[in-house]
Simulated scan of single mutants.
Amino acid sequence: MDATIYHNPACGTSRNTLEMIRNAGIEPTVIEYLKTPPAREELAAMIAAAGLTVRGALREKGTPFEEMGLGNPDLDDEALLDAMMREPILINRPFVITPLGTRLCRPSEVVLEILPDTHKGAFTKEDGEMVLDADGKRII
């Protein structure tokens, strides 16, 4: 299965998501979006495919969100996309695209919705939370 992750290696959620994809036996295309951001049209399409609004795909924490005045509810999608193009750190992460769908994987286990049930076994996130049991089944 093809999979693409828009990844930030400094982000624990992004690292956990990448490892869950690999735990499913998939080696994804990894795009470090801070170095290689998606084109504007591609970003807008990913956001829509994930069922989000543009505002819902904005990252506030650790970004220039406040300094850029992005909390203003009167800003339209075009203005928000312009800001995300200027400052890719504003794009929330990780976005994952597979033939089964597109998701903003926050929390990281959201990625399981768009992966085949081919997990190699248990998976524990960096914080110690167990997501998959020894049989590769999701722990609820």
Rank of each mutant, 00 (worst) to 15 (best):
A3K: 02
T4L: 10
I5Y: 08
P9L: 11
R15S: 06
N16T: 07
T17N: 11
N23Y: 01
N23V: 01
A24S: 15
G25C: 01
I26P: 01
E27D: 15
T29N: 15
T29S: 10
V30Q: 06
V30L: 08
I31G: 04
Y33T: 12
L34C: 12
K35D: 15
T36L: 14
P37F: 07
A39Y: 09
R40T: 11
R40D: 10
R40N: 11
E42A: 14
L43S: 05
A45T: 15
M46V: 12
A50M: 11
G51R: 05
G51E: 07
T53Q: 01
V54I: 15
V54L: 07
G56R: 02
G56A: 03
A57D: 06
A57P: 04
A57F: 07
L58V: 04
G62T: 12
P64R: 07
F65T: 03
E66D: 13
E66T: 13
L70A: 06
N72V: 01
P73E: 01
P73V: 00
E78K: 11
A79V: 03
L80K: 03
L80H: 05
L81G: 09
D82P: 11
D82N: 13
D82R: 11
A83F: 04
P88M: 09
L90G: 04
I91L: 10
I91R: 02
P94G: 08
P94R: 01
I97Y: 08
L100F: 13
G101F: 09
T102Y: 11
T102W: 12
T102G: 12
R103H: 10
R103A: 14
L104P: 01
L104A: 04
V110F: 05
L112I: 02
L112D: 00
L112R: 00
E113R: 08
L115Y: 00
L115N: 00
P116M: 10
P116A: 12
D117V: 07
G121N: 00
K125L: 12
K125P: 02
G128D: 09
G128T: 04
E129Y: 00
M130C: 11
D133Y: 06
A134L: 05
D135K: 01
D135V: 00
K137F: 03
K137D: 00
K137L: 08
R138G: 04
I139D: 06
I139T: 08
